[in-house]
Write a protein that binds this DNA or RNA. Structure first.
Lengths: 337, 337
DNA sequence: CTGTTAGCGCTTTCAG
DNA sequence: CTGAAAGCGCTAACAG
């Protein structure tokens, strides 16, 4: 392996000058510069990554993406595809590469957030769970990071950037719309209780329901977000006269559709259905067409990279960004266009 | 930042012993081990990545994925999603993370393949173009790598692993099937001529056509794989009596469909259509249903990671793996079930 | 610009 | 196991 020393010797130019040519931090005359570059080309010299970063805490120009931090979710989520694609493209615009960590324990992940632990300048964390105490224990300094998803109270006072959807407001809005359209008994089949998104939805639901004693509300929790879970809880609540159901995602919604059909009820007129999460890649088809809210993951990625790049460059204070989901009212919501 | 020195001083244990505890390469008594670990926990020590790898050429446990190496293709290919997902999952099984490089120049990419240049133990390269001379210039040693796609002659004698589909055989098989079903004039709308896959398809096409003087064949090249290109070339060739068209991908196929319709011909009976590449995520719909060959990217990923992990661990000789695509005959191919 | 020196945090070696 | 010392390849500081 050729080193800076080798090319210094070969050209008779000082090692420090050679270093300056490559780091570009100090002026080197065109003449000398050429000579160094020519020798480097011939000798196939290329700066050593590890030495460069180690020597004076330089940047690696790599962003770390930490996927799947809670076991409840399990596996590679469908939306990761879109997120990774968008993050890759956005990062590249700023000269960063993306390093994907998948399936690490919370402890390993926490370690990797300390400076020098991993070859990353900053970290992007997704969907933290409520039980997650990753960072709360760490009192030493951390690399810049941004959390995608609700990050409240997870970091034991540690400051960090965050990006989230307004889940509380989303559910509130949908419930209000259901009430406006005359629904009297509204049910929500939520996700796993360990997720922060679940408690956010609960909050929005309860706020909207409690404002009006004439409307009743019920919440169920689906441990694994399956069609079977959706069928099970929908069957129960429909027998009690429920006329509107909010689902955490498309899998649950497909079970809800089946339950409604089996009870000879009509989706959209007898029972309104709305899915709070939706992924086109799920290969689910809904008839009548499902009403849903979709996350704009490209926007998430853009904001995440912007926040983190700003943080790295300017040591700017942590910021929070709220991105609202797009609501699509379709046939499962009845007359509404 | 806590270092190995700090915890050596704090515990009164030798620096080298502390190092051994963390590297695990030499035996350290349970007693001492505990003491070191306890202190590390308390002082929030975590080994420094850069120093560890630099000091004695240790592994980073990171695999580099180099996307989009030719400008003709441009942008983020739809199949990258699947490939990244599969590679992420496979890598994790072997304890590796995946670092994605996107939009690098060929020169930068070549640099990154030298040891120590990037924080990666090995590289995965996709879809090399024929003009690509990345590696042919480099005579120094390279890190282990695997090429996904045709890698023949690209590397100036450099040995490397490779994974490819049998594009020659695939096209040959499809053309034979077309002939068997009575097609007399077969056209292929291929991709950009700079791609190796393009010349492979040409080869298979010409082999199958030339075996039989009664069948005529024509090849066109679409620079940008657009619907417009498909329409353009299909319109021309259909006017000359072509009764079967092979398309490089779904975009081209959609233009071909339109051209056939505009000439009042019937897909599947008057003209058979087959797409050699297909991506479900393209959001294209075909009526009648399109016949196509699909790559098994999950299999690609699995094989790629296996080859590369084996190479890293055992310095094993470069291997080549051929993965055959799955052929789906649908309505655009006529009576064939 | 040169040439030297110190240092980043770790691994390795080697004598005790 | 200790303790000291060399070295990975680079950056930065400083006197000339």
């Amino acid at each position: 392996m050729t080193t800076i020393n080798d090319i210094a010797k070969a050209t008779g130019i000082a090692k420090s000058t050679v270093s300056n040519v490559f780091s570009g931090k100090k002026f080197v005359s065109a003449k000398i510069r050429e000579k160094v570059l020519a020798a480097a080309e011939k000798m196939e010299y290329t700066p050593n990554f590890y030495a460069r970063v180690l020597s004076h805490k330089n940047e690696s120009n790599i962003l770390g993406l930490f996927l799947e931090n809670n076991e409840a979710d399990g596996g590679f989520q469908p939306y990761y595809d879109t997120l990774i694609r968008s993050l890759t493209i956005e990062s590249a615009k700023h000269g960063f590469s993306l390093l994907i960590y998948f399936g690490l324990s919370n402890q390993d992940m926490a370690c990797d957030l300390k400076p020098g632990r991993s070859p990353i300048d900053a970290a992007i964390l997704v969907s933290p769970s409520m039980e997650d105490e990753r960072l709360s224990k760490i009192s030493s300094s951390l690399i810049p990071f941004v959390v995608i998803g609700n990050a409240k109270g997870l970091f034991g006072g540690k400051e960090g950037n965050s990006i989230d959807t307004d889940n509380v407001g989303l559910v509130r809005r949908i419930v209000f719309e259901m009430k406006r359209q005359g629904c009297k008994k509204i049910a929500m089949i939520n996700s796993n209780q360990t997720l922060t998104i679940t408690s956010d939805r609960d909050k929005g639901f309860n706020e909207a329901i409690s404002q009006d004693p004439k409307t009743k509300g019920d919440i169920f929790y689906s441990a694994h977000s399956t069609k079977e879970d959706g069928y099970y809880y929908a069957s129960k609540t429909l027998k009690n006269g429920t006329d509107a159901i909010l689902c955490a995602n498309g899998f649950i919604a497909s079970g809800v559709y089946e339950a409604i059909g089996d009870l000879n009820l009509k989706i959209g007129t007898d029972v309104k259905v709305f899915s709070l999460g939706y992924s086109h890649s799920n290969d689910l088809s809904f008839s009548p067409s499902l009403s849903f809210a979709a996350q704009d993951y490209e926007e998430f990625a853009k904001q995440a990279v912007n926040l983190i790049v700003d943080d790295i460059a300017n040591k700017s204070a942590p910021k929070s960004v709220i991105i609202s989901s797009k609501i699509h009212y379709n046939d499962s919501f009845g007359e509404q266009k």
